[in-house]
């Protein structure tokens, strides 16, 4: 049995959660339009670009994948970068799995919707409220809203880019770089993330003339591994 206060509390937050889910979906659709345009600029067909949004459905991986292909990188390099970027979704799933209480087909569906935005909207809720219903609503509402709007936006972006002609005349190459920088910016929160970004900037720039396109980006993963392990080692030393 749920206490009456818990149910009233849930009723009060329910509308807020649904509204926030819609807002997140609308915000993300701006990126979706950029992604759709970027896919076409990279040389993918409209169908391939839309398939990425339907099937891959994890923004940073999608943008990196078409970015590397567009720069002339090998498909294997693009795939590897997309997978490294998608690794964080597995961490989100670990956090969400006990709270969502899903089995079978629902779990398969939940997995596809496990992304930055649905996770954020879920863990922003009080986990104890109405026996976890607020957290679950946050996940499902956020995931469905972003899925629908992201895919719609991809179609719009892809079709408009095809109608545009020479993308460079419109500065679309700068828009792509700026869009990716917009994904990076909110992740620069502390000294550690700034040093990872600075190191990656330097490494990528130095490597560009010497290795095939896409490889400089992939190599930046080593900086993340290096900095993460050294931070944790320092932590352990401090703890004694």
């Amino acid at each position: 049995m749920q206490s009456p206060e818990a149910t009233t509390g849930y009723a009060a937050v329910r509308a807020t959660i649904l509204r926030n889910a819609l807002f997140i979906g609308l915000a993300v659709s701006v990126y979706g339009i950029s992604f759709g345009a970027m896919g076409i600029t990279a040389g993918l067909s409209v169908a391939e670009t839309c398939a990425l949004s339907l099937l891959m459905f994890t923004g940073a991986s999608q943008l990196a994948f078409v970015g590397i292909l567009g720069a002339g990188g090998a498909p294997a390099t693009a795939i590897a970068t997309a997978l490294l970027l998608g690794a964080r979704n597995a961490m989100y799933a670990v956090r969400l799995s006990t709270m969502l209480r899903v089995r079978g087909g629902w779990r398969m569906l939940a997995a596809q919707l496990t992304i930055d935005e649905s996770t954020a909207l879920s863990i922003a809720q009080d986990e104890k409220l109405a026996d976890g219903r607020a957290s679950r609503l946050g996940f499902w509402a956020g995931g469905v809203s972003v899925y629908l709007l992201w895919n719609t936006a991809t179609v719009i972006g892809a079709l408009s880019a095809r109608a545009m002609g020479d993308p460079k005349a419109f500065g679309l190459d700068a828009a792509i770089a700026a869009g990716l920088a917009g994904l990076l910016w909110p992740r620069l929160r502390d000294r550690e993330s700034w040093s990872v970004a600075a190191g990656s900037f330097a490494l990528a720039l130095v490597m560009v003339p010497f290795v095939p396109a896409g490889v400089p980006v992939l190599a930046c993963a080593l900086i993340a591994f290096g900095v993460a392990t050294s931070t944790l080692r320092r932590h352990r030393e401090l703890m004694g």
Binding site: A71, A181, L183, A198, A204, V208, V217
Partner: peptide, 24 residues
């Protein structure tokens, strides 16, 4: 920790390449 830092590293790398290079 690694999973959280990977997007920072890869996005920084790809922004660099997209903004400052053409091919090699």
């Amino acid at each position: 920790h690694v999973a959280a830092l990977l997007p920072v590293a890869l996005l920084a790398g790809i922004v660099t390449v997209q903004a400052l290079s053409t091919g090699q």
